[in-house]
């Protein structure tokens, strides 16, 4: 007997027990070694594609905000590496990442959402001189250091966090 169903008859029964135990949850669906590729993909996604999911009405706002920056702000990468990114877009990005992190059924891996979350805060701090979080200094620093400790974070993104950490140190961890 051939076909995917037919292969069941020849398979090891313990493997079949695993198949019968398939976890339908949203957690841990990707392997740790895939996080690098997922982060790269996430950063290259058109901003509107993901952020419009927060609130359908936001799509228009985001379109306007992105368009105001010409063609330079299309992706999360464009936003995070922009010399003067629109603060509102950074806030929306933080909101998207936060809701993804806190929702157990979120399809975005929590590690990726965490990077996006702290990245939006870090960039708002370094490029806009604004603090868009109520996190205390210690928690914020721990978050940034966590991102820097992840081997799957690319150099360009890592640079954003290093810059924010330096800025943080210059300011003595004080709110701006």
């Amino acid at each position: 007997m051939t076909g995917p169903g037919g292969r069941i008859y020849q398979s090891d029964s313990r493997r079949l027990a695993d198949l019968m135990s398939v976890d339908a949850g949203a957690e841990r669906i990707w392997r740790p070694e895939e996080l690098k590729a997922i982060l790269q993909h996430q950063l290259s996604v058109p901003i509107q594609f993901d952020l419009s999911g927060i609130d359908p009405g936001l799509a228009r706002t985001m379109g306007t905000l992105a368009a105001a920056q010409g063609l330079l702000v299309k992706s999360f990468n464009d936003l995070l590496h922009h010399p003067s990114p629109p603060l509102e877009l950074l806030q929306l990005t933080k909101q998207f990442a936060k809701s993804s992190r806190s929702h157990p059924d979120s399809p975005l891996p929590p590690e990726i959402a965490t990077v996006l979350y702290f990245a939006s805060i870090a960039v708002a701090m370094t490029r806009c001189g604004e603090r868009i979080t109520n996190l205390d200094d210690e928690t914020l620093r721990r978050g940034i250091e966590w991102v820097l400790a992840q081997p799957w974070v690319d150099d360009a993104t890592r640079g954003l966090f290093q810059e924010s950490l330096e800025r943080f140190d210059q300011l003595g961890g004080q709110s701006e």
């Binding site: 398939v22 976890d23 339908a24 949203a26 669906i29 990707w30 997922i38 993909h41 996430q42 996604v45 058109p46 594609f49 993901d50 999911g53 059924d105 399809p107 975005l108 891996p109 990726i112």
Partner: peptide, 14 residues
């Protein structure tokens, strides 16, 4: 188009 979309399809499949 995005990790969200890929994840959604995988979750839906499971």
């Amino acid at each position: 188009q995005s990790p969200t979309q890929a994840s959604n399809v995988l979750i839906t499949a499971k």
